[in-house]
Design a protein around this nucleic acid. Structure first.
Length: 530
RNA sequence: GUCCCUAUCGUCUAGAGGCCUAGGACACCGGGUUUUCAUCCCGGCAACGGGGGUUCGAAUCCCCCUGGGGAUGCCA
């Protein structure tokens, strides 16, 4: 059978970084196997799902080149199939309607099957024994069992689970007499909805069973049935719940591998039973570790930084973000990090995915983005940078500036700092400004340079180097030490491109004016009140 | 509370009982190239959470503890 995976987000707002990482892993896996990568939009939460959110999602996927196969499936369009599936399960005795707590309409529950012969994922663990709190009655009815165990301090600890969790259950009174045997009553309980309430029980014994499966990433996982409750499949308003819709859609789309976030591990046990109840073998599962923020906490929907759109706006390249995200929780096993999509596809296997949560390191992302920017074809770089340059991108020398800056840009948002090439109105680093102009010699040398720059119409590198050397000599400044103050007065920044070229691009007289202005400002601030 | 998952440098990771004196990358700190900035090159700092086992031998297997995460919804 061909491999089929799906990305099944619910469109309820921005696209989260963890979400898109799930899409990336699904995509990588599908392309590696030569399988199909489907997109299913789980829009059943009518309150929160919006068309805008769907558009945002599609844009993000398109931006990252996460191409999907076939048509998009909108979950709301499958409602009939969901309800049919529920009815089919009721007919087979695998589900039931239960009266809601305070009258009203009945939700439909899936019954964790008492008899699990057709459910290969369930097995016996062994006999179990529980100490019960005698003051809490044990209640047993067709929806399950509820009781209280005893905490270390002797307090009642309420617990409730499905009937199926308690095969061969026996209840004992304080004298050790068996007061109830579930096996003898189970038919009446399930068929006739006969309820039981047993008081003053102190002990319960039963055969513990568990549901298990092998997660491709996490290995074998299991959970005892006495820790699981029957689950609601259809709400009392008649709408299908996530679990039902999700599984039914996976069945209709013939999904073979479910790759999703760690937070679904617990749901998987129920989903597996739903697959069996629908007469299907469950697919393979792979649960991805979560991505956490720099303080080690999971990104909440409120973490503005974690939206794909934000990374795009700040000037991250889709290829870089893709590459970085792919490396969060996965590695090819050798020392490669910067990889092409094709290389990632070839190297990608779920077995190599880690199972511990990963922290997003913005430094590393930035570095990778810089590496991708550095190797962009120049024309593309200019084009891209133009989007972040505001109106000075229209300047004729924009391209020359871009040529100077490409190797320095790590994130296109930084293009905004190129402003000093085009306008006299640029921010100045105050702290560095004071430090660099503190020396009287430097200020005198700058004054001299301003004069020279003003008197010269044609600038060349040679002339600039000569004049700077001369200034250093004249005012007793160590070789190379005048560059910093000069750079600062001319550009306002401590770093930048080659100074000679920078000055030539800005223009001699303009630089001279900036130097003079800086000297004036420094004088004023150094001697206030004069 | 209960259940489940998880644990290697600050961060992402390599590591399947001897190849580990624990490797790579980012960040950081030095040095070189550039009279300045960035790139580039060289070097440095830096980790197996703690305690018990198993074994001739443990980062690797088991148990306990601790830390972190998740689940415990008529959300998805």
């Amino acid at each position: 059978m061909d491999t089929v995976v799906r990305f099944a987000p619910s469109p309820t707002g921005q696209v989260h970084i963890g979400n898109i990482r799930t899409a990336i892993f699904n995509w990588l896996f599908a392309r590696h196997c030569g399988g199909r990568f489907l997109l299913r939009i789980e829009d059943t939460d009518l309150e929160r799902s919006t068309r805008q959110a769907i558009d945002t999602l599609l844009q993000c996927m398109d931006w990252l080149a996460l191409s999907f196969d076939g048509e998009i499936m909108y979950q709301t369009s499958q409602r009939e199939a969901h309800i049919n599936a529920a009815n089919q399960m009721i007919a087979k005795g695998l589900a039931y309607a239960a009266p809601p707590p305070e009258g009203g309409l009945s939700p439909i529950f899936f019954r964790i099957p008492w008899d699990c012969r057709d459910f290969a994922a369930i097995r016996d663990v062994g006999p179990a024994e529980l100490e019960l709190h005698p003051e809490t009655p044990v209640k047993i009815d067709f929806t399950g069992v509820s009781f209280s165990t005893v905490s270390k301090k002797g307090a009642p600890m309420p617990a409730a689970a499905c009937l199926a969790g308690f095969r061969q259950m026996k209840l004992y009174d304080s004298k050790g007499n068996v007061v109830f045997e579930l096996e003898k009553e189970i038919d009446g309980i399930i068929r006739d909805k006969q309820p039981f309430t047993l008081n003053s029980c102190v002990k319960m014994t039963f055969m513990r069973r568990e549901i298990f499966y092998k997660d491709i990433i996490k290995g074998e996982l299991s959970k005892p049935l006495d820790g699981i409750k029957d689950l609601i499949m259809v709400r009392s308003d008649g709408s299908p719940v996530f679990h039902l819709a999700n599984v039914v859609d996976d069945v209709t789309q013939n999904v073979t591998h479910i790759i999703r976030g760690d937070d679904h591990v617990e749901n998987t046990y129920r989903h597996i039973m739903l697959f069996y109840a629908l007469g299907r073998k469950p697919p393979e599962y792979a649960h991805l570790p979560m991505i956490v923020n720099s303080s080690g906490k999971p990104y909440s929907k409120r973490d503005g930084d974690a939206f794909v759109g934000d990374f795009r706006e700040k000037g991250f390249l889709a290829e870089a973000l893709f590459n970085y995200l792919a490396l969060l929780g996965w590695s090819p096993g050798d020392d490669r990090e910067k990889m092409t999509k094709q290389e990632m596809i070839e190297a990608f296997t779920l077995e190599r995915v880690k199972s511990a949560p990963a922290q997003l390191d913005s430094n590393k992302l930035l570095n990778m983005n810089g590496a991708y920017i550095a190797e962009m074809p120049f024309e593309k770089f200019v084009d891209y940078a133009g989007n972040y340059a505001g109106n000075f991108s229209k300047d004729v020398k924009f391209e020359q500036v871009a040529r100077l800056m490409q190797s320095r840009v790590k994130q296109f948002g930084q293009v905004a700092t190129w402003k000093y090439f085009f306008s006299d109105d640029f921010p100045v680093d105050e702290k560095v400004f004071k430090k660099q102009l503190a020396s009287a010699e430097a200020r005198a040398a700058l004054g001299f340079l301003a004069g020279e720059l003003n008197s010269r119409s044609e600038l060349t590198k040679e002339w600039l180097h000569g004049i700077i050397s001369k200034a250093e000599e004249n005012f007793g400044i160590a070789h190379g030490k005048l560059f910093q103050p000069l750079r600062l007065t001319v550009s306002g920044a401590a770093g930048g491109a080659e100074l000679d070229e920078t000055i030539m691009l800005i223009g001699g007289s303009r630089c001279a004016a900036r130097i003079s202005r800086s000297l004036e400002i420094y004088q004023k601030e150094a001697s206030p009140g004069e």
